[in-house]
């Protein structure tokens, strides 16, 4: 590795390697973790969650999602995965000269309305302009802080054998929606992104079942496949999942089949993976469904070995290993 390739940004194994090799050794401090886009900091006697993310969507609008909405929902959902109530967000823009002010206004409007919807305030920000051609239109960087709820600790380390693994909705919709909206494949169908804030779904759950919820993760880049691997690696356990149990929208599945892609590695922007004490599984599922997550489903269990691995019973009864996303998902070529 002597140059950055697109694959270093895809959220899979190369992204992790880049973090370890280039950043972790130099920044080295006790707060910096493998899940490097978030940290939980003790300030006085409060636990503050702090996250940051850069958003580079192309195209900037797809069905169900816009760059502005994503930049807020993404950061808010990251704060939730720290077990925190999202509170304040910053927003910085890098734009090309010539970028239409009208579109910038639309992005800001989408951000404002997303922020209102998840009860956070955008309190600071910055704008930088680069020469035409030096950035793909506009990039948005948001950071957020929130306070971690009491009796809540939802790090990936906390998954334990016996726990139940739940997803709150059908997976892969955002990734497929963006791919199709790019129009490169000439698919006439339209798939709606799941981009949304999970505040209304997750906060009540944390308040009610706090200590029973062991890990929370949002399967964004790299999809549910990569997220499950992260939990298995961090908790040194094995996640044993059932393919038939993983909710996948039929149109997402059909598009993936056609393009030779795996929905397990397609990004979600409005889904959470929850590792929960088995005694609370059915209550948590009921609570999720009551709050509108109709597709919430148990997808498997945590077992002790083989450590750091994800095993899946396929829908036809075979058994296979589920790896991390590697490289950029590309359609097959024959």
């Amino acid at each position: 590795m002597d140059r950055i390739s697109l694959e270093h940004g895809a959220g899979g194994k190369l992204s992790h390697d880049l973090f370890t090799r280039v950043f972790a050794s130099k920044y080295g401090n006790r707060h910096l973790s493998r899940a490097a886009d978030k940290a939980v900091l003790r300030i006085g006697n409060r636990r503050i969650a702090f996250t940051t993310d850069a958003f580079i969507m192309s195209p900037r609008k797809v069905p169900g999602c816009s760059l502005g909405a994503l930049s807020i929902h993404g950061t808010v959902n990251d704060l939730l995965t720290c077990g925190a109530k999202p509170m304040y967000v910053s927003a910085s823009f890098v734009m090309e000269e010539g970028f239409p002010v009208k579109e910038l206004g639309e992005i800001a409007e989408d951000m404002a309305s997303a922020a209102k919807g998840c009860e956070v305030e955008i309190v600071t920000g910055d704008t930088k302009v680069v020469e035409r051609g030096k950035a793909d239109g506009a990039f948005v960087v948001t950071s957020g802080i929130g306070e971690v709820l009491s009796r809540v600790d939802v790090s990936g380390r906390n998954a334990r054998p016996g726990d139940s693994v739940i997803v709150t909705g059908s997976v892969g919709r955002h990734g497929v929606a963006v791919l199709i909206a790019r129009g490169e494949f000439g698919l006439a169908t339209e798939i709606k992104s799941d981009c949304s804030s999970l505040t209304g779904l997750i906060l009540p759950l944390l308040r009610k079942y706090g200590p029973m919820i062991h890990s929370l993760r949002d399967p964004t880049r790299g999809g549910i496949g990569t997220t499950l691997n992260e939990i298995a690696l961090e908790s040194k356990t094995c996640l044993r999942v059932e393919e038939a149990g993983i909710p996948i929208d039929p149109s997402v599945k059909a598009a993936c089949d056609l393009l030779g892609m795996d929905p397990l590695y397609m990004a979600c922007e409005g889904v959470m993976a929850i590792v929960v004490d088995p005694r609370a599984e059915s209550q948590v599922l009921r609570a999720l469904r009551k709050r509108g997550a109709k597709e919430a489903a148990p997808i498997g269990r945590v077992i002790s070995i083989p450590k750091g691995r994800v095993l899946m019973t396929t829908s036809v009864g075979g058994i296979r290993h589920v790896g991390m996303l590697r490289g950029v998902s590309l359609p097959r070529i024959c």
């Binding site: 030779g260 019973t313 396929t314 036809v316 009864g317 075979g318 058994i319 296979r320 097959r332």
Partner: peptide
């Protein structure tokens, strides 16, 4: 890929 993805060989 299909054999591997569906775990067919394990059957």
């Amino acid at each position: 890929v299909s054999l591997a993805r569906h775990g067919v060989k394990s059957l």
